[in-house]
Amino acid sequence: MATVAKYLLGMWIAATVVLAYRWLPPAEGFAVPEAAPIVALHLPLALVAIIAAVVAAAQGVRYLTGRNLASDARSKNAAALAALFCLLTTVTGSAFARVQWGGYWNWDPKQTCIAILLAVYAAYFVLRAGVDDPEKRAAVSGVYIVFAGILTPMLGYVVPKYLAKFSLHPTNTQFDSRYWTVILFATLGFTGLYVWMQNLANRFDVAGLVLQQRLAEAEEAPAPRLVTMATAASGADTEATAWTTR
């Protein structure tokens, strides 16, 4: 069942990309109309990047409230995928920008926002790499991702205002129905891809955690015993069940 789903997903995405380049009409008003379809892929990538970011923050909150290392693993995987999709968004956007406006980087507000988000994730992973104790690492990561999650939405409001002079993202594009179809297909496809990758990584990490727990429990450690001092002083060791009953 799962294998079938995976194959379907792969075919779906392949079909979407093919559709984008074969079926979509060249867009008017674009410098190189044949390159326009990349936009149909660029938007869904951005959307999935945001979904992943939200999941990462939500799992961070779950760790902080439940202290379950599995939540931390999920948060980390979501953050990694968010970074990946941010990167893909930037790359597709950059390629399009080169073709359309002649430069790879233009300080466009949306471009800048995604880049800053990438910087947040880069810092997140550097922070994780710097803490050895798994529980401390999980706590620090969770707190950082939530803190970032609270402060970064401001970017969406502030950056467009201050970098408005550099804005390249068009505000009045009319996409015809074929574009919307491809965008929808691509959104579904990429979301499916994200869910699959996240799920895979989660299962791997959770399995690792369970294994660790089993190994820890299997360790042959002698049980603690309770001894009353008077008998110990007299040289004989007795096992005293000295629970004080209340």
């Binding site: 450690a221 002698p222 049980a223 603690p224 015993r225 309770l226 001894v227 009353t228 001092m229 005293a240």
Partner: peptide, 8 residues
């Protein structure tokens, strides 16, 4: 008064 011995 009592000792808790942790390693046998």
């Amino acid at each position: 008064d009592r000792a808790l011995v942790l390693d046998g």
